[in-house]
């Protein structure tokens, strides 16, 4: 059935800009309306790839969980025993459906566990720990790159 969800949202954005915004007098309401339009843009942007992004991220996180379990099994840290078991279990799971709610629940479990590994590795000086921490940070960077950027405008590092 057309228009699909993304097309509908884009249409609503257009209607707001064309018919509603010019009629709004309050500066505060104008700001709110512009924010609503931007939020609709965020939904449209993420609509098509939402499930695939989660499927891909879950697969990458499971691989990372397996790698972390291996490192922590070979070179245990204080409190890592239970985490190794949990990571091993998570690494063996698969996504049973492509419903966003189920993919997100699995993603949350994986990200929670990887976050705890990252915390455990803080201050670890052996090459295995530094290497694993780097891989985790690189993964988190990749996740962030898939999300909307520069919504406050361009910024400079340094």
């Amino acid at each position: 059935m057309r228009p699909n969800s993304a097309e509908l949202l884009q249409g609503i954005q257009g209607a707001l800009a064309t018919y509603i915004l010019p009629e709004v007098e309050s500066d505060y309401a104008k700001t709110e309306l512009m924010l609503v339009q931007m939020l609709l843009g965020v939904v449209v942007q993420g609509y098509d790839g939402a499930a695939q992004n989660l499927v891909d991220d879950n697969a990458a996180l499971r691989s990372l969980a397996g790698e972390a379990a291996q490192v922590l099994m070979t070179a245990p840290l204080a409190g890592s025993e239970a985490l190794v078991e949990e990571l091993g279990q998570l690494a063996g799971e698969t996504d049973a459906s492509v419903r966003l709610s189920e993919l997100t629940a699995a993603n949350d479990k994986l990200r929670d566990a990887i976050g705890r590994v990252g915390v455990l590795l803080q201050g670890g000086t052996s090459p295995e720990y530094i290497g694993l921490r780097t891989v985790i940070i690189e993964h988190l960077h990749r996740e962030l790159e898939r999300l909307p950027h520069d919504m406050m405008g361009p910024r400079s590092d340094g």
Partner: peptide, 9 residues
């Protein structure tokens, strides 16, 4: 509302 691995680290 969801895990925050970056903020935890």
């Amino acid at each position: 509302l969801e895990p925050q691995p970056v903020l935890e680290m």
